[in-house]
Design a binder for these strands. Structure first.
Lengths: 187, 187
DNA sequence: AATTATTGTGCGCTATAACGCACAATGATA
DNA sequence: TATCATTGTGCGTTATAGCGCACAATAATT
């Protein structure tokens, strides 16, 4: 049930900040009686109330209505596994899988010499970061190729076709971060 | 206003399917009077009602509360400069400076052997990512040290004291991303 | 023109979200 | 022990979400 998810999330966020109901009420401008009822699943809050709560907690609204994934406010998640996936022309592995709170994911790529990989446009508003770890990499963005060496970075809008190619002599390793547009900024 | 977004989205989805209010009411089990009020922004729906609407339209709930259009600036920014800054015990340079849209920044750090760097708690809700590029790194989080080797990653809540230390024999290079909580304003 | 659907909106009613306040339970201090 | 502060919950009231139904406006039939 949706109310269960909201209740758990709210309680978890409040507890992790060590806020009392009174403190949370002051931050969100929602009465502590109502906050208590929501946490006890005795009330199905209005979207306007949820909005005030999210705003008071400085959180995107969506994390309140999503099942508590890896969000856990205080836990650290480490990944040592080198889960390497093979593609036709490049190898990659997941550094950080998609997180609904941060709305981003991160990969490590390995592209062999004389290899090119083209990527279709992502969803509107997606921004991509490239960090070259070693080797030389060329990025196709806005119809032109840009050369990046080890240590170089590039940030571009990924909602149009783009590509990666390695015209060097040794393999290139680079990381990339995909930032998906965050939910709701209303004005 | 959030109600404006919901109203536009609902109306758009209904119109695109050429559903009447009666049809939409039948699909969602929400009275057509209420659907009409929501579209006219005369009512701030309950999260339970929004859920029924999303289900009836076979849509994820989040798309109802997302602004329909997200613009994309088509500029790519590259940084080649190696602006290295010196600190007492570790060197770092900026990979991506803080961006108000993404609310994150990224650094590359270089920590010499037998060096320890302690960091105070960041702002509430800040999440930090660590990606070890080379060498071995120990992270102090939740009162305990965790060992990371090249290729390992760690994500943790940075709103409490934490630290980095290098107990290996060669220098360690690691990247870190600071995710600041997205602050939303509404009126 | 008159009739018949089909559209969306207005009205009254009920259920409940949301409020402020008071209280009880727990812990902390003297 | 008594006193004070802080926790969360229960109660009575008000505001409003949500319902069914009826009506008005439009268009499409006869």
């Amino acid at each position: 049930m949706l109310n269960t998810i909201i209740a758990k999330n709210l309680k978890q966020f409040r507890r992790s900040r060590q806020w009392s109901l009174a403190k949370a009420a002051a931050m969100t401008k929602v009465s502590k009686a109502m906050l208590g009822q929501i946490e006890r699943q005795e009330s199905s809050p209005t979207i306007a109330t949820l909005w005030k709560i999210a705003k008071g907690f400085h959180l995107p609204l969506s994390v309140l209505i999503e099942p508590c994934a890896l969000r856990s406010d205080s836990l650290a998640t480490a990944s040592h596994e080198q889960t390497i996936c093979l593609d036709s022309d490049l190898q990659f592995r997941v550094l950080f899988s998609f997180d609904p709170l941060l709305c981003c994911e991160m990969f490590s790529h390995q592209l062999q010499p004389d290899r090119t990989h083209l990527s279709k446009a992502h969803e509107l508003g997606v921004i991509e970061d490239i960090i070259v770890i070693s080797g030389e990499l060329e990025i196709l963005v806005d119809e032109s190729w840009q050369l990046l060496s080890a240590g170089d970075t590039l940030r571009f809008s990924a909602d149009k076709n783009h590509g990666y190619r390695n015209i060097g002599k040794k393999e290139v390793i680079f990381h990339n971060i995909i930032h998906y547009p965050k939910i709701v900024t209303c004005h």
